[in-house]
Simulated scan of single mutants.
Amino acid sequence: MHMADALVSTPVASGAGIAAIVLLGVAGYKVNKAKGVNSSIVPLMGVLGAFVFAAQMINFTIPGTSSSGHIIGGVLLAAFLTISSVLIIQCLIFADGELFALGCNIINMGAMSTLVAYPLIFRPLTRHRHSATRLVFASVLACLVGIEAGACGVTLETEFSGKRN
């Protein structure tokens, strides 16, 4: 679902890039502020980021299509900085998505899963009861919402860019 440069216009890419930078700044501030309370959070974010990065390298064939997909990992991490770091590395080193569209990719795959689906779907559903069935249901639902919200973001960004087939 990495968005390519050709899908977005300069104003849309710039706006998404600025929004992504602001979100990263706020997330960095919050992690730095919370670090005094829990000093093990940053190493844990790094280890989980490495795990998700490695897990994302495994592609799965999508039946009935000639395409493949991989996990996004945002709901698993629930850490915007970490998933954004993974997306930046994928962009710069592995050419998954392109630099011009990086802000869009961070919003679509990072923010929609960690800042929308996780706090609005997963956390409320698991707040009071932690049964295995409830955790699985909440995880699947949050992942679906995060992926669909990101896909809607791609559609909106493409539409605002005036790019049509």
Rank of each mutant, 00 (worst) to 15 (best):
I72C: 00
V86W: 00
N105G: 09
I89N: 09
I83A: 00
L144I: 13
I93K: 07
L77E: 02
S113M: 15
L141G: 10
N59K: 13
T82D: 06
L92T: 10
C143H: 11
V145T: 04
I89F: 02
L87Q: 06
L141F: 07
L125E: 05
I72W: 12
S84G: 04
A78V: 12
A138M: 13
A117Y: 06
S85W: 14
A132M: 15
A78T: 01
F80V: 04
F137S: 14
I106W: 00
V116D: 05
A78N: 08
R134M: 13
P124N: 04
V136Q: 08
V116T: 09
S84R: 12
S113A: 12
A78F: 15
S84T: 11
R127D: 12
T114Y: 05
S68E: 07
I89L: 09
I88H: 00
S131E: 11
R127C: 10
R123M: 15
L135G: 04
G103S: 09
L144R: 06
S131D: 06
P119M: 13
S68P: 01
L92A: 11
S67K: 10
G146L: 02
C143G: 10
S66V: 06
Y118M: 13
N105S: 07
N59W: 11
G97A: 12
L81S: 11
G110I: 05
I107V: 08
I107A: 15
A79W: 01
R129T: 13
L144P: 15
D96L: 01
H128N: 14
G69Y: 00
I147L: 10
G146R: 03
M109Q: 09
I93S: 12
N59D: 11
I88N: 02
A101R: 06
